[in-house]
Write a protein that binds this DNA or RNA. Structure first.
Length: 556
RNA sequence: GCGCCUGUAGCUCAGUGGAUAGAGCGCUGGACUCCGGAUCCAGAGGGCGCGGGUUCAAAUCCCGCCAGGCGCACCA
């Protein structure tokens, strides 16, 4: 298999080093890494291992490299040659037949190509968006949604058993606050001027919900006891907003496996249980009428309150129960995706995981930096509190789902993202989405033309792929062959943006090929070989777009 | 004051120990009456915020400083 080749070469290198050790030449074996050289002349893979060994044995790297090369046993692998270059690099050039086999593999596996089993079925949960159901999703949530959904798809492709989850903060003060806000607007609509609560929500959507309630229920809550009516307003508003969130995410192409309610954690007594558990282990103590989690035991700079002196719990309390619950459900790796403004929360959560008796290394937080929304280069100011913000829905309506999803993963998640609405709308060179989609549409078009001309897709057994021998074609094949590795790295580094850079690069190589060579106009041998190549490109580009949640149009 | 993130080409960003630092946009000049020019080719353009250090090798690691963002609640 294509996928294992890298691992096999690493293994053989390790075998050689073990031999060194046996011969007493080396006391400790350094880690063997294979990298993709920048220049295609250096072959498919290269290793700098000779430099590391040279250091330990105090010899010249180039001599060590030669020694390793001479001891390497690769006869049974499709390696054309191992070159020693650049003062000690070992460069592995693969036989041509190997790259042609990659193409065949792609045709056989179709969009399934690129999958691997590095995840080994490990159960991983990706929790993202998890916005409070107190208002519509805004642009920042959109970025989190795109990153989370894409990351989940990458992990799945890499052989993990992935679940996507949305945590609904439907308990606590913010819910009461929401209900009270709606109630205030409702009362005003009924002719009784009522002030918003101090920390109330000011968005227009609060008015909308209030007015909807009035239409359905009339003025009957005016005379009702406040506490009693509040419950209704809260429930109604929460359900309404949550439904809106689900609809927006659906529109955005993001589907969760589980919607997890914070309130359930309280109702089931898990919050209480978890706190008791930690108390027994000595991680919770009382001071000043409140209960504190001893997060300083895990490197946090101060302890944190879990139960306030008025007896109510803080968010940390339910987060403790929530993460314990996740582990209880059998997840072996937890990935939380948070807005970067919550970064201060990371150390205490890491501490929580450890205090609960789980390995903090099995818990990762991916921080998403803010989105800087622009129009014609000018920043659009937003304020959630004042209820002035651009919603995700508005962005989707304006630029479209494909463009939005694509843009959100063009940057490393911890760097700020400039999102210019005008730029995003342009169907032009400025817009990388079209560049990639266009490449896909072109591949489709070639086969559409082939059909019109009565040309059938060649038989894999009889096609002579060695006719694909130009630099341009070989480079294209090389990039296709790197796909499984790209997936692996993106999974390991939790880096969805790598998909963007990869597919952009692949599309570029294809456009280059397209502008230099004909497919259908060639004599049958070359034509058939190129059809295989184009088909492979179609599958891989299609697969990446799939992972990014962006459509692959057959016409544009 | 403390902590986290960021600082790479005119602009927006990749690259986290290795071979002449990459891409897109922008700029300049070009491309077959032939599978879609939303494409392609060529050129100019930076030595990686600044100063030290570690290393055979540093944009990448360590220390200090500067600039921008964010966070430092018995808020969520």
């Amino acid at each position: 298999m294509v996928i294992d080749m890298r691992g096999k070469i690493v293994q053989r290198l390790q075998d050689v080093l073990k031999g060194f050790k046996k011969d007493g030449l080396l006391d400790e074996i350094p880690e063997v890494k294979l990298e993709k050289p920048s220049n295609i002349q250096f072959g498919e893979w290269s290793s700098a291992i000779a430099f590391h060994v040279a250091k330990r044995v105090r010899k010249r790297p180039i001599e060590v490299a030669r020694e390793i090369a001479s001891r390497l046993r690769l006869d049974d692998l499709p390696v054309e040659a191992v070159d020693v270059a650049g003062g000690g690099f070992l460069n592995f050039r693969m036989k041509k037949e190997w790259s042609y086999n990659v193409l065949k593999t792609i045709i056989v596996q179709g969009k399934g190509y690129g999958s691997s089993n590095v995840g080994n079925g490990k159960r991983v949960q990706v929790e993202f968006v998890s916005a409070n159901p107190t208002g519509p999703l805004h642009v920042g949530h959109g970025r989190g949604a795109a990153v989370g959904d894409t990351l989940a798809a990458i992990l799945k492709k890499a052989g993990y058993d992935v679940e996507k989850e949305y945590y609904i903060n439907d308990a606590g003060n913010q819910m009461k606050n929401l209900g009270a806000s709606v109630r205030a607007r409702y009362m005003t609509l009924c002719g009784i001027d009522t002030e918003l609560p101090e920390q109330g929500y000011r968005g227009k959507y609060i008015w909308d919900i209030a007015s909807e309630i009035r239409e359905k229920e009339g003025d009957r809550f005016v005379s009702m006891d406040e506490d009693e009516s509040l419950e209704f307003f809260t429930m109604y508003a929460k359900d309404k907003i949550l439904k809106g969130i689900k609809d927006d995410l659906g529109e955005f192409g993001v589907r969760f496996d589980v919607w997890f309610s914070e309130k359930d954690l309280y109702d089931s007594g898990e919050v209480e249980d978890s706190l008791r558990f930690l108390e027994k282990r000595g991680y919770i103590y009382e001071k000043g009428g409140a209960k504190w989690f001893r997060s300083t035991a895990f490197g946090d700079n101060k302890d944190r309150v879990v139960i306030k002196s008025d007896g109510t719990t803080t968010y940390l309390a339910s987060d403790i129960a929530y993460h314990r619950n996740k582990y209880m459900r059998g997840f072996q790796w937890l990935i939380d995706i948070w807005g970067a403004d919550h970064h201060g929360y990371v150390p205490r959560m890491k501490g929580v995981i450890e205090a609960l008796g789980f390995d903090p290394k099995s818990f990762d937080v991916l921080l998403i930096q803010f989105v800087n929304l622009l129009r014609d280069g000018k920043q659009i100011s937003m304020s959630t509190r004042a209820g002035e913000f651009i919603t995700l829905r508005e962005v989707i309506d304006e630029v479209g789902r494909d463009v939005a999803r694509f843009f959100f993963i063009t940057r490393k998640s911890d760097s700020h993202l400039d999102f210019d609405l005008e730029l995003a709308k342009k169907a032009s060179l400025d817009n990388p989405v079209y560049y990639v989609q266009y490449a896909y549409a072109r591949t489709v078009n070639i086969f559409r033309q082939a059909e019109l001309r009565g040309i059938e897709f060649p038989n894999l057994e009889s096609v002579d792929l060695s006719l694909l021998d130009s630099d341009v074609e070989r480079l294209l094949i090389k990039k296709l062959s790197a796909y499984p590795e790209e997936i692996e790295i993106a999974a390991r580094e939790m880096a969805p943006h790598r998909m963007f850079f990869y597919v952009q690069d692949l599309a570029s190589s294809f456009h280059h090929f397209y502008n230099h060579y004909r497919v259908l106009g060639e004599e049958p041998g070359k034509r058939d070989a190129r059809m295989v190549l184009v088909k492979a490109v179609q599958y891989v580009v299609g697969s990446v777009l799939d992972i990014m949640g962006v459509s692959a149009p057959e016409r544009m």
